[in-house]
Write a protein that binds this DNA or RNA. Structure first.
Lengths: 211, 211
DNA sequence: GAGTAATGTAGACAGCGTCTACATCCCGAA
DNA sequence: TTCGGGATGTAGACGCTGTCTACATTACTC
């Protein structure tokens, strides 16, 4: 009966998420509070509570939005080419997002969230991204077993995820790496991943001639 | 004159760090508070403030302790064998620590900390670990340039770091991976890293016969 | 038009980090 | 031996937070 009743006032709910994102961007995650959101929106401090049962649920909504943007970014990678090229395009898109949207990336992967099982839309986005990777790998080597494909997908994802994390990390600053090492880290990582997976057809081309 | 004056009451300071770690282990990072620490130690809520100027500094002390334990764990990896074996031992030790001490690992790499430049002991530990990796890689292929060694060190570290993060992640639960994929992820990752780096002498041995 | 569910308001509560004023206590200098 | 000062712990206050409750208002349904 009240099927559409939950959208009685979509304005405030949406505005809360937007304002929360703004606060995080301006002052950092630690300064996010329901009261601050309410203050900036000119409503009472209890108002957001009608739409988010806790601070964490508001944060979850923000993160869900980040996942959406991330999935869209991956989907929008340059199409065309064989499976191999597509895989590489995905890697580039992944790192590109992590480095160009560090706030969004950090929110997705460095934030303690309420049990994700309660947020199916998040899981769906993550699953979607992982499915892209898995199918690209499967197309690349049709002879591989499902288990091997899956293991490689986990490997590729983890490696890219790890590099993104490392590059964003404060630790990196203390390591005194050569600037070019950092600048070329993405390309180097993709090259190494290519070498690790082996190249069914055009091996040398990728090992040497990338970028 | 007061060279040892800062150790007037080493008891409480040490006890605070220990108790903080216990609280985090029992109730999670979000339940850590100076007041709770004080309460469990039976002192007034202001007492810890004599030793830690803020909550974040206490947390930093806890994290520093984790870094120490981590560095010791890496140093304690089984010695012997050639550079190749040592590199693999380091990878095993890394993943082993990340998975057997998830709390410690999370504190090190998933916690927003005060500017690390103010905590040289932390940077030193991180630098030490990275140095281990770099020198192992250098010994493995003496002909490689310093830049290439460094880039590979970053690659290896990031890949391991990423896998550790992914395996600890809540997201993983929603991906419906085969259990064996998860169980073998570490070994698979180390195998792929080996393949990516190439094996100067005994290539096949590592690709096929590991574990 | 009446009733009802959704939405926003206002106030309260406990908990937190942090600051300040005050009480001890211990060590070294006189 | 005394005494003075720095380090340590205590007690209370402040403003902030998340969350709960009771109340007002609004808008849609019957």
């Amino acid at each position: 009966m009240t099927s559409a009743a939950s959208s009685r006032s979509p304005t405030l709910k949406e505005a809360c998420v937007t304002e929360a994102l703004a606060i995080i961007a301006e002052q950092g995650l630690e300064h996010l509070s329901l009261r601050e959101v309410a203050r900036r929106l000119g409503v009472s401090h209890g108002a957001p509570y009608r739409h988010f049962e806790s601070r964490d649920r508001l944060l979850a909504a923000v993160v869900a939005r980040c996942y959406d943007a991330f999935a869209r970014h991956l989907d929008a990678r340059p199409a065309g080419g064989d499976a191999d090229a597509d895989l590489r395009a995905m890697g580039v898109a992944y790192l590109d997002y992590a480095l160009s949207e560090p706030l969004s990336y950090q929110l997705m992967f460095s934030t303690r969230l309420p049990p994700p099982t309660e947020h199916p839309e998040m899981m769906a986005s993550a699953d979607h991204a992982f499915g892209l990777l898995r199918s690209a790998l499967a197309r690349r080597s049709p002879s591989g077993s499902a288990i091997e494909i899956e293991a490689d997908a986990l490997f590729v994802w983890s490696a890219l995820h790890g590099l993104a994390g490392t590059l964003r990390s404060d630790i990196l600053a203390g390591l005194e790496l050569a600037p070019e090492t950092v600048a070329e880290a993405g390309a180097h990582m993709l090259r190494r991943i290519g070498a690790a997976l082996g190249h069914p057809e055009t091996r040398e081309q990728n090992v040497a001639g990338q970028r």
